[in-house]
Design a protein around this nucleic acid. Structure first.
Lengths: 362, 362
DNA sequence: GTCCCGCTTGGCAACGTTTCCATTTGGGAA
DNA sequence: TTCCCAAATGGAAACGTTGCCAAGCGGGAC
């Protein structure tokens, strides 16, 4: 920058004013500086810039689960898009549900003096965020709120999702509906609440033996659990699979065993409509989740000091076939008529929170 | 840091030596400083650290295509993992095949004085990388090399992939094999080379009408092109779909039309084995691609100044069913017997670059 | 013609490190 | 006891920017 100043025959202060724009600089001077900048190929050093006190860096951090999970990948994508449109760079760190890694990653990111952070917290207890909060670097939690800490959070409507899924199965005549729960301190608990609420609303009793909590939320664990479920004497007629991976495992198990029960999953995934039995799911718009979190964080970075907010992203039901199967032996009494050929219709039609979708996405 | 120095009754230089370790500090002093650090909750400011001349920042950048593409997501994941294990933070920027965005993103990332950069270049011509190269910030290209620039690059064996896919179809008795090409300045061209090489090796003539280049590499474009292909009078009996999205579109079109030709795709994707017709693909290990690129970059960051390297990640064929279908009307003459029940076997078996896989992945 | 005001501009301090250099300290040998 | 060398330590400069303050400059009003 000093080189530019010398070449343009001005002071460094003037160069800074030109680079950042806005300040009062005579057009002729600005033009001269501009030329010097281009001749020397100068570009501002954002590191030094962030060093100045009160100067907020233009980098934010995103701490998120395994990117191989399309749900997280979708969030990350929209975060990157929104941040870049606003001129912010994003440091991404992927911690796979390990509290110790998360702690280390948070520390390392903060040492880089980011302007703000978004994270999908691994545990309910986020004491280590207090310190960050004290340093007044804004933090927005994604998908799961924290306990105790007064933090902004953008979550999805898990409870309503659980309700929608379960009520949909009940409406199709199911009375014994199992729920496969992936371990999580928050989301699946909320989904279970919705499940119970829907059962209660329909006057059905909750059978605890039908609520299966997995050791780990993988496809394989869900597959094994489903095979076990199918082997029971008093087996259910439908399954609510509370996660995209769980849903996949459940469908795989049923296909392998050759016994297809009704299934509604949680979280959409690519090719869900193109499986041997297309998957009916309840899903939020993952893009919207990432987008709203980023927008909230950027408002905080810009100086918004209002009270902590909790935003809720709505969910919707996408009917594709697996959730519209009737209970065996009761074919005559579906609560409402099935579409004649569920795998042939092509356009998605929104019907008040319920979408019938057999199309495809790029 | 000055606060720590005061509290420990030492100079700032000593604190720096303790924090960075290695230098000669008396154990008793170091212990005193260490305690002061903990009491004050001090953590090094990596921004100021990177400001020092000759001091390399501990942040690298990854510029990659749309994370909604699982191939890119897989690369990003392994990059993050390797980098974090080495103590590096990663700035990720996602540019969706737009040269102008890419240029801007590169500039913005360099202004943050990263230690190195990995990118999946959008265009063959990367003149703007020259400047970066001159500034001796190491750059590693992923998936596609650049022209003219002497850069490190880690690519996959596209040519061999194209050859394997085509030869596999030929071995199953196909003579008219179409190729659906997504637009790309490099990868699909290489894959097309392999395709031609396999045809030549089998003594088959290349029919240019069977090579269809899409306007854009989306599922929808591939679907439309496939429908068109199926409607031709002299239609092919097999298709080589040179991309994961293209493969998806092709399979969807065939399923919708009810006319299933043999298909081999390029790049694996989740659920490929769980479609109405499980997808046979040729695929590299995306994790390995990201891992090797990151390792190479970190070696460069650490000071390795050897000549530019070009690493090639191998590909392998995964048989799942869609690629093992016989040509219609010639059922009697498959070049080798099909497995009796391709959708039932469960374990993946490696047979010299060819894998038969009907299992599942978490 | 003089004065005053406002727009431009130059220069310097400060941000938090690391490294170099000079100085101090400690200990062992003569 | 004195001297010398090595190890340990303190302090200051420098990295590249921005913001503040003071000064310069020009023009308009009286």
């Amino acid at each position: 920058m000093r080189d530019v100043a010398v070449r343009a025959g001005v002071g460094v202060g003037t160069v800074s004013r030109v680079v950042n724009g806005g300040a009062s600089v005579r057009p002729v001077t600005a033009e001269r500086v501009q030329r010097a900048i281009e001749e020397l190929g100068f570009q501002r050093n954002d590191v030094a810039r962030a060093l100045r006190p009160g100067m907020t860096s233009t980098t934010i951090a995103l701490l998120i689960g395994n990117l191989a999970n399309p749900f997280y990948a979708a969030i990350a994508k929209s975060v990157l898009d929104v941040a870049r449109a606003a001129g912010y760079a994003v440091m991404v760190s992927s911690v796979d549900e390990d509290a110790e890694s998360e702690k280390r990653a948070v520390r390392e990111l903060f040492s880089r003096r980011i302007a703000g952070m978004m994270l999908v917290p691994v545990r309910r207890d986020n004491g280590f965020l207090q310190r960050a909060h004290r340093s007044d670097t804004p933090i927005v939690l994604i998908d799961r709120p924290a306990q105790g800490v007064e933090n902004d959070a953008v979550v999805i409507d898990n409870d309503r999702g659980g309700f929608l899924a379960t009520a949909h199965l009940i409406a199709h005549g199911h009375r014994r509906i199992a729920m496969l729960v992936a371990p999580s301190y928050y989301t699946t608990g909320q989904r279970a609440n919705g499940y119970r609420r829907a059962l209660r609303a329909a006057g059905l009793a909750l059978d605890p033996s039908l609520v299966v909590t997995l050791e780990v939320g993988t496809v394989e664990a869900a597959r094994v659990a489903t095979v076990d479920l199918l082997g029971r004497r008093d087996r259910p007629t439908a399954v609510f699979a509370t996660t995209n991976f769980v849903c996949e495992g459940t469908l795989r198990a049923m296909h392998a065993v050759g016994c297809q029960l009704a299934v509604v999953g949680f979280d959409d995934f690519r090719l869900a409509d193109f499986l041997p039995v297309p998957a009916t799911v309840v899903t939020p718009d993952a893009d919207e989740l990432g987008r709203r979190a980023t927008e909230l964080l950027l408002r905080r970075v810009a100086g918004d000091r209002g009270p902590a907010r909790r935003e809720v992203v709505p969910v919707r039901l996408v009917e594709r076939g697996s959730g519209e199967l009737d209970p065996p032996g009761r074919d005559a009494q579906p609560a409402r008529p099935r579409p004649a050929s569920p795998r042939r219709s092509v356009r998605a039609v929104d019907r008040g929170g319920v979408v019938r979708d057999h199309g495809r996405r790029t």
